[in-house]
Each structure stands twice: as C-alpha cells, then as structure tokens.
C-alpha cells in the first residue's frame, strides 16, 4: 500500500509503521506508565501495612480504590503490587527467554541435537502446567524468587519452539553457509548471523512471555502460593477471596483485575503492532 523507500533501513521502516498504528504507541505508553508507577511507588502511596479503622470502605475521597478487610488502602496495594507483579514478570520472562533462546538456537543450528531437544520441548509443552506450578510452588514455599523460577521453568518451551522455527529459516541461508566456508567458528556464526536473525521473534516473545508471567504470578498468588510478605495483584485478589469479601466488596477485586487486564492487553497490543510493523506485507 505504502511506497517502499529502498534507501531506508528495515528498522526505520518498522518504526515508522509502528508509529502510524495508534494502538501500538498508546499500548507502549500504558506499559511505560506502569513502569513509572512501579519505580516510583514510594512517591505515589505509602506502603500498605498495619491496619486502618475503616474496614471494607467503598471507593471515596480518602481511599480512591476503597479499603480491604484490614482497613488498608487498596490503591496503595495496587500501586505497590505493580512493582512485584512487573518484577516477577520481567525476571521470569528474562530467565525463560535465555533458556528458550539457547535451546531454540541449538536445535536449529546443530541438526543432530534437534531431535532430542525437540522431544524435550514437546514433552515440556504437553505437561499440565498449572497443577505442576502449584505443586512446585507449594513444595518450595512461597517467596518471590520461587515464583520467578517456577514460572520461568514452565514458560521457556514456548520461546524455544518459536526461536527454533525462525532459526530453521535462518540457518540454511547462503550467508551462513558462506561463513562456514570461510572457517567461522560455530559460536561466531551463531552470534553474528543466527541471533540477529531470530531477534525479531525474541522481541515479541519478551513482551508476550512477560505478560503471561504476570498472569501466572497473579494466578499462583490468587491460589495462595504468593509471597505473603509482599504485595502483588494476585495477592490482593487472594486476600479478597479468603476474607469472604469477594462477593460484597467489589472494589477489592475490580482494581487489581483491571491492572492485570491493562498490562496483558497492552503487552499483547505492542506485540501485535510490532509484528505487523516489521512484516513488509502488513506494514
């Protein structure tokens, strides 16, 4: 549709296409805002601790998002929850991405390892993820590092699979064969040619895996496997469910759920918009 300007780099073209789609930049803005909230939590609200006299007060002047069953401000909980939710999401996704890329690239590049690694990935993908996560988190005891490791341990296979399929398209390229002919080492070829080749799918994976990790964290925390010493969106939901105020005090569940929804939708939109923008056919 648009006139392709041959003299511009693909990166620049992608960026221009990305900016033209209003959904992409606005989703990025939401994510950035959440990042700012997470970083500046102490400036926005006091850490929710102790107790307050107004128990289960509905949203109003003093408490924008109302109070929970110990009279603590739900707004402060959502703000501080942003921090833990995002940290867990990013850390888990970083671990998953590293593991996934290593396995995916290895499978695509070393053809002999492909069958074995493929079986491992397929096996991991076919596991009942949620029950296993619950089991491991329950046995290891609730804490933020446990959550990160558990979520990462069950998220990497999807990354590995996506990276492998992209890598399979890159490895047979003439310039890779040429590098072989010139005597380049495996590591050098992977670093110089294969990794840049799979970078776009990795970028999309980072966003999607993070949002999925945030969801998984919320799910595990909601089931009571979160860290009781820190606030996350799932923990707020769990408290509401446990105290029996789920059906009566809608504000204890609505706001953390909205936060989760906002983050997941934004992350998905960013990924979709980026994907469309980087593909010359949909640009």
């Amino acid at each position: 549709m648009t006139v392709t300007r041959a003299h511009e780099s693909p990166g620049r073209l992608t960026w221009q296409a990305f900016r033209r789609n209003p959904l992409g930049p606005s989703a990025v803005a939401v994510l950035l805002l959440m990042g700012v909230v997470a970083l500046c939590a102490p400036l926005i609200a006091d850490y929710p601790s102790g107790y307050g006299e107004q128990v289960l007060a509905p949203p109003g002047g003093g408490h924008w998002f109302g109070t929970d069953d110990l009279g603590r401000d739900v707004f402060a909980q959502v703000v501080w929850g942003t921090r833990v939710s995002i940290v867990v999401g990013l850390a888990a996704s970083a671990l998953a991405i590293v593991a996934g890329v290593v396995v995916g690239v290895a499978a695509a590049y070393f053809r002999r390892a492909d069958a074995a690694l493929g079986v491992v990935v397929d096996l991991s993908l076919s596991l009942p993820v949620l029950p296993l996560m619950i089991l491991v988190a329950a046995l290891a005891g609730p804490s933020v590092p446990t959550l990160v490791v558990v979520i990462a341990a069950f998220s990497w296979p999807e990354v590995a699979r996506v990276v492998r399929s992209q890598g399979l398209a890159v490895v047979p390229m003439p310039y890779v064969s040429a590098s072989h002919a010139l005597g380049g080492s495996h590591l050098w070829i992977i670093r110089r040619h294969v990794l840049p080749g799979v970078a776009p799918v990795v970028a999309v994976s980072v966003v999607l895996t993070t949002s999925r990790a945030v969801l998984a964290e919320a799910g595990l925390s909601f089931l009571g496997l979160g860290d009781p010493d820190s606030w996350s969106w799932g923990t707020i939901l769990h408290n509401a469910q446990r105290s029996g105020s789920l059906a009566t005090a809608w504000w204890t569940t609505l706001f953390p759920s909205l936060a989760i929804l906002l983050l997941v939708v934004s992350a998905t939109l960013v990924a979709v918009a980026y994907n469309d923008a980087s593909d010359p056919r949909t640009r």
Binding site: L70, A138, G141, P142, P228, D229
Partner: peptide, 28 residues
C-alpha cells in the same frame, strides 16, 4: 490467621524484630 499474621509482622517490625511470614498450603 492470615490476617493477623500480617499485623503481628508489622508490629514486630516496630519493635525492631523481623518476622518473615510463611503462609503455607495446608499439606506443607
């Protein structure tokens, strides 16, 4: 208990004592 455990942790902190909460799944 899950509720007052948080109050115990927060008031102990004011007395200079660190209490780490381990809210566990029933079997554990």
């Amino acid at each position: 208990i899950a509720k007052w455990a948080q109050l115990v942790r927060d008031s102990a902190k004011q007395a200079g004592v660190d209490i780490k909460l381990e809210g566990l799944e029933r079997n554990t």
